[in-house]
Design a protein around this nucleic acid. Sequence first.
DNA 1: AATGAATGAGATTTCATTCAT
DNA 2: CATGAATGAAATCTCATTCAT
Lengths: 200, 200, 200, 200
Amino acid sequence: MTASKSQKKLQKRRSIIEAAVKVFAQKGFYNAKVTDVARQAGVADGTIYLYFKNKDDLLISLFEDKMELILQRFHSRLHEITDPLDKLKEMIDVYFELIEEDKDLADVFQVELRQSTKFLKDYHNEKFLNYLNMIADIIYHGIDYGFFRSEVNVHVVKIMIFGALDELARQWILGADDKYNLEQAKEEVKQILVSGLIKF
Amino acid sequence: MTASKSQKKLQKRRSIIEAAVKVFAQKGFYNAKVTDVARQAGVADGTIYLYFKNKDDLLISLFEDKMELILQRFHSRLHEITDPLDKLKEMIDVYFELIEEDKDLADVFQVELRQSTKFLKDYHNEKFLNYLNMIADIIYHGIDYGFFRSEVNVHVVKIMIFGALDELARQWILGADDKYNLEQAKEEVKQILVSGLIKF
Amino acid sequence: MTASKSQKKLQKRRSIIEAAVKVFAQKGFYNAKVTDVARQAGVADGTIYLYFKNKDDLLISLFEDKMELILQRFHSRLHEITDPLDKLKEMIDVYFELIEEDKDLADVFQVELRQSTKFLKDYHNEKFLNYLNMIADIIYHGIDYGFFRSEVNVHVVKIMIFGALDELARQWILGADDKYNLEQAKEEVKQILVSGLIKF
Amino acid sequence: MTASKSQKKLQKRRSIIEAAVKVFAQKGFYNAKVTDVARQAGVADGTIYLYFKNKDDLLISLFEDKMELILQRFHSRLHEITDPLDKLKEMIDVYFELIEEDKDLADVFQVELRQSTKFLKDYHNEKFLNYLNMIADIIYHGIDYGFFRSEVNVHVVKIMIFGALDELARQWILGADDKYNLEQAKEEVKQILVSGLIKF
DNA sequence: AATGAATGAGATTTCATTCAT
DNA sequence: CATGAATGAAATCTCATTCAT
């Protein structure tokens, strides 16, 4: 009984987060009203506060929950690949898949995630660091296997890669231009990164 | 007389923008109050509204004015360089110089501007496109001179480069980690991009 | 339950309108602060905005609600009278009764409503037209019964009558002079109008 | 020299009042901004305050100046007429002439004048009383000459007449209906008032 | 647990008025 | 005398959060 209750609670918590993703993506965190999220989730305003401490907490929880899922996805798709180049390429594929799959979620990646870093200086953004480290691990793996230049500054490169992918995604989402599709972007990025990292 | 008058007006406009950069960087756009900006600029609240339509307009004006200066800086530093690799490298140098020179401005560009829905979505961002095109021109120049692979998808690459630089800057500004200094980042980025673009 | 709920809402809406009548009459629409109305109604400032879109809407709603009641009063008092002269006289009696009963409401109608440009010009005033038409109907009735001159320009006369009553009410309310009481005014008006309209 | 200076001053004062009439008529006193009046008058904002103590004073001055002119007009047109009926009819003619001549001025009569009565309770509206008394004098004159019923309550009737004319003017100005022209209204009013007042 | 009406602090913005030029 | 940029008090309205039902 307690189990089913907590099951139900989790369910509702999730549906509020889902609503928040949608609303925050559409209006931005600051312009989104708690009422908007409540209406989207089909609950009363007050109900939000039974599941989250306040609006800020909702953003953080949203971020953590979603990031968790994303990290799982990366892990499950990458952990069996041993070839370093394949691993890097697969990571890029998974990234663009995620973007294509859920534009709203992508927006969370693009904008809210950014904010949250600063937003709460105290809040230590562990999930995001895990994400960056996953990229770092791919590079380290490539260096260990002798595919990538050993003098690569992994810390810098992981940020570079994240930034590059991120910005391509943003431009695609904003639809500011239709001069490229994600497929082309994907291939070009792979090409540049592989050439940039590989040892001759 | 008219000249000195409009000179004075421009002066004040500029000082309000300078104040806004400082305040927005410190508190974030949404948490910064118009009063804060006014106090920082040493003017009355109402004065802000003699120079800007509203708070959003202040942010956008800030962006446009500053971007203008930045583009000028890039132009004056790059237009005489003909060697494609030097041109790319110099662009990266200028970029990081700008970041180092004015951390507050960098913060507003990197973080606060991303938060303004209006800015991101509604506002048609000509100055930003000019910036991206400047990067594109450097690549085209390299291709023309036969230094870069001719099949490079310039449109994708310019976004990649922008994103990579941007993210490195943001991470540095947020000071999330002090595992790298800008000097290291600069060199690593040059290395990767040159290797990634160059024709063998 | 839904009924009692909406009952309660209506109750509060009404009490806000009642408070607005009092406050607007006392300070004038433009000088009255929303806070004043809220305090008078015993609610928080924000509550006003749960029931009315804005301050203007409060004034318009006040007018519509009250006018509705007034029209009902006229109707219930006049509809059974068939003698045209009695009908005209009763209308005048009811009018002055209303004024005497609620001086504050009268003031808002006579003075404050005139100030709201929006109200006077933009707002299409159906309720007010109903009111004028009620007067017109009384005249038509008198003409049909052969009591009033058949060549009377009803459209002009209804406005005249409205204006005359209205101004008498206003002067009485403003208390600019205490040279007459409503009773005297009532009789004089009846006398003049009847003599003015009657067929010999 | 002092004379010509004060001549000039009067000129400018008058032009500011003229501007105020236009602006207040268009926007209403409360919605009109001092800047609007200044621009309309072709002077700087601050200049207004060289001629009037404040915005309220501008309204009062406007009212007094205009009322003065109006009273002069009535006087010059009525003082030579001795026949009471002609006098009453001429007054009505002059009234509608004034309305037709200057719609903006009419609006001042219709709306702003109203406000001013309450607007400043302290301010004793002498000019307006003069106006009402002019009407009263016409009635007294008619009674003295034995044309009008001697028991007429002049105080009430003067207000009635003012109200009736006023409302007809307002309805015509607002153009709410084009069901009557001023000519028709004029004749109807004369007819009713004469029949209402006359002694048999 | 859920609701949603009510709260009230607080932010943006306006505009009458002043005063240095 | 005239100007108009600057002021800053003050008002409307919003919205995160609470709490009685």
